[in-house]
Design a protein around this nucleic acid. Structure first.
Lengths: 226, 226
DNA sequence: TCGCAAGTGGACGAGATCGTCCATTTGACC
DNA sequence: GGTCAAATGGACGATCTCGTCCACTTGCGA
């Protein structure tokens, strides 16, 4: 909390401005959940009870708004990683991590879209936090493999593959919790040593670094305009 | 071919009109692949070298155009099902079916989006063909289970879950073939008896009938306007 | 209490897309 | 060759969204 406000500078806002900022974020979550992240900015502004100008001043681009609106969920992802590492049984930790993130994608309408939208980005400011997250995740994977639970040919990028495909599923079928849970169960089972059955094709070149697992703070202005 | 033209009535078109229709479809495939299925209709028309009016006359809605443009791919899906049934080893057949459909999603840019777009629909005219497809797929599943290859708790709706999630993945990462192949491999392995490891959560209520596995012919006018 | 910088709202012009309308052209059949 | 219904193209009005600009308001420190 203190962390993100330091990053976004929301502390230095005047009281009324800070209040409006929060209103906008709440409204954005509602509107995005209801109409998708492509909903008109005007709708968000109206719902928040502010003018468009105010909205644009706080969040110059739709992207910035989306990121800020779902910063909390992203923080939860990061927290899940920490907790996973703390778990004594590494497979338990791994499983919980996958389930927590997928549950977020399943339950918070709008978040999945935000998740993929945020995906290819690797904003400068968070590079370090992300690198840390990547490192932690790697540790988790190694441990789970050493414990003989996670299959040896599991590649870190497979985590991204799992999350993105699950994301796609819940986007295609919002509300179908059973489908989401099924997919997660299948994936988790296929990651176990017992499921290993012949060689897998080569892993993706996807970098985990680009996964939005690290806390976003909010705002998240793009460093590169283009 | 003869089948679909009978359905869409394209035989009764004047020669020039029929030619234009084909041009439009080619252009649509190109444009959709390049800019996504939300590309402006005008762009498609220009690319096809026809006026917008012509485009709108043939395909009253963007949806109709999308369906028609990817009808061939959908036919391939249907054919894959037939071939899967013909395969002596039912697991081989099952595996091939999944791989063929996923390959289509992977290789034909634009098709995945069309696939999910088409998904929730169950147009009257194709009800019978679909029901047949569903029946065939069920047979395939039963056989593969009886052969002791496909896990007993596999539910037909899991096929839809697999396809939709894969679809989401390739949409999020167009061009990352490795990721797509990995997911398919994991899913297939998790469908094997060997992977069964504890109970799965309840299957989705998704009906296979709504999966666009059956041939579309083209055009595919909505029966219900609303 | 006062002054002013920070904050605000909503009108507005630019740009994009939609789908229709109609005057004109063209293919098919006699 | 002639006739006519089918087919065509592109202009056009309607609608929507964006992001900016500016006159007005307000919180807060002195």
């Amino acid at each position: 909390m203190g962390e993100s406000s330091r990053i976004t500078g929301q502390d230095s806002l005047r009281a009324d401005a800070r209040r409006n900022r929060q209103r906008i974020l709440s409204a954005a979550r509602l509107v995005f959940a209801e109409h998708g992240i492509d909903a008109p900015m005007t709708t968000v502004a109206r719902r928040a009870g502010v003018g468009v100008a105010t909205l644009y001043r706080r969040f110059p681009t739709r992207d910035a708004l989306v990121r800020a609106a779902f910063a909390h969920q992203l923080d939860t992802c990061a927290r899940a990683l920490t907790e996973a590492l703390a778990e004594p049984d590494p497979w338990q930790g791994f499983q919980q991590l996958v389930e927590t993130v997928c549950e977020l994608q399943r339950e918070e309408r709008g978040f999945p879209a935000a998740f993929v939208a945020a995906f290819p980005d690797s904003t400068r400011e968070y590079a370090r936090v992300r690198q840390q997250a990547e490192q932690d995740f790697l540790t988790l994977v190694r441990r789970a493999q050493a414990a003989g639970a996670l299959r040896a040919d599991f590649h870190p990028s497979d985590f991204a593959v799992a999350l993105l495909s699950h994301c796609g599923l819940v986007t295609a079928l919002p509300g179908d919790r059973a489908a989401s849970r099924r997919l997660v169960a299948y994936l988790l089972q296929s990651f176990r040593v017992e499921a290993a059955h012949g060689a897998l094709p080569a892993p993706s070149a996807l970098s985990l670094r680009s996964l939005p697992l690290a806390p976003y703070g909010s705002q998240g202005q793009r460093s590169s305009g283009a």
